[in-house]
């Protein structure tokens, strides 16, 4: 079945609380030096004229079976000839970010003002596909070869605002479907704050989904919100573009269906659930 048709079968919301969608790949580290970041930037600079330099993300691999400790971060000593960095390349309004480091390529779409309309997965996926292909062309022409993709990642960041279906952590059961809010006795008061992480395994070791819930202050408007992140990570069948996109579609399906299962019908109504 074509991807577009499969995607339309997922549950849908007219006003979802999503504030960011992240699609990314991790690959075997390239011999990517500081000047290469600039060379790549020169290709995308007309559309992504801003940059930020950040510390690199760790190299992570999901583990399954007997080794299952969920994920392994590469640790140890390494002789690094050049500083290891991660570059953000942002478009003019800042809604789109391309993150590059020597073993990662990530595309983000994020809300900046809060009033933007979420462009939907199909659009974000299309942009990722185009930018990843362009990055691949750059690597190919620069003699880096084809990146050996070992992990893909889909992350959706949702901000659940207070007074929109719930008022305090004592009413978290109105938001999270698996949280009863009840104790076995009467001693404890309602919780002052709650944060939680829940992991789910995808079938056939396709990956793992991390659901995290934590209170945060959003910097754009100094507002306290509950951040609900869903991240799915795993290895694609191969490094081919088609295999990467196929894995991302599975990851996105888990995020959408997982988000719907993890939250309550009351909240679904507020977010305009249509399927």
């Amino acid at each position: 079945m074509p991807v577009a048709n499969q995607l339309h079968k997922l549950r849908d919301f007219s006003d979802p609380p999503v504030v960011e969608t992240v699609l990314g790949v991790q690959f075997a580290p390239l011999s990517f030096a500081i000047p290469h970041f600039g060379l790549y930037w020169s290709r995308i600079q007309p559309e992504f004229p801003q940059y930020r330099v950040l510390p690199p993300l760790g190299h992570v691999r999901e583990q399954f079976g007997a080794q299952s400790g969920s994920l392994i971060r590469k640790m140890g000593f390494e002789v690094v000839q050049e500083p290891d960095i991660r570059c953000w390349f942002l478009d003019r309004p800042g809604n789109q970010i391309i993150q590059v480091q020597r073993d990662r390529f990530i595309y983000n779409w994020q809300k900046i003002s809060g009033s933007e309309v979420y462009p939907r997965y199909e659009s974000v996926r299309g942009r990722f596909e185009a930018e990843w292909k362009q990055f691949g062309d750059f690597l190919d022409q620069g003699g880096f070869g084809k990146p050996e993709v070992n992990q893909c990642e889909v992350t959706y960041v949702n901000h659940l605002e207070y007074e929109k279906g719930w008022k305090s952590f004592g009413e978290l059961n109105k938001v999270i479907s698996c949280w009863s809010g009840k104790h076995s006795g009467t001693f404890l008061p309602e919780p002052e704050k709650v944060s939680m992480t829940v992991n789910y395994l995808l079938p056939n070791n396709q990956g793992r989904m991390y659901v995290s819930l934590e209170p945060v202050i959003r910097t754009r408007d100094a507002k306290e919100v509950l951040q609900l992140n869903l991240t799915v990570r795993g290895a694609p069948a191969s490094s081919d573009q088609a295999a990467v996109l196929q894995w991302l579609d599975v990851g996105r399906q888990w995020v959408v269906e997982g988000f719907t299962d993890f939250t309550t019908d009351v909240m679904h109504n507020i977010w305009g659930r249509s399927k």
Binding site: L57, W88, R218, Q227
Partner: peptide, 12 residues
């Protein structure tokens, strides 16, 4: 930013 997220937040 210690993860892939771009949206700025202060975790509490």
């Amino acid at each position: 930013r210690a993860d892939t997220q771009g949206v700025g937040v202060i975790k509490l």
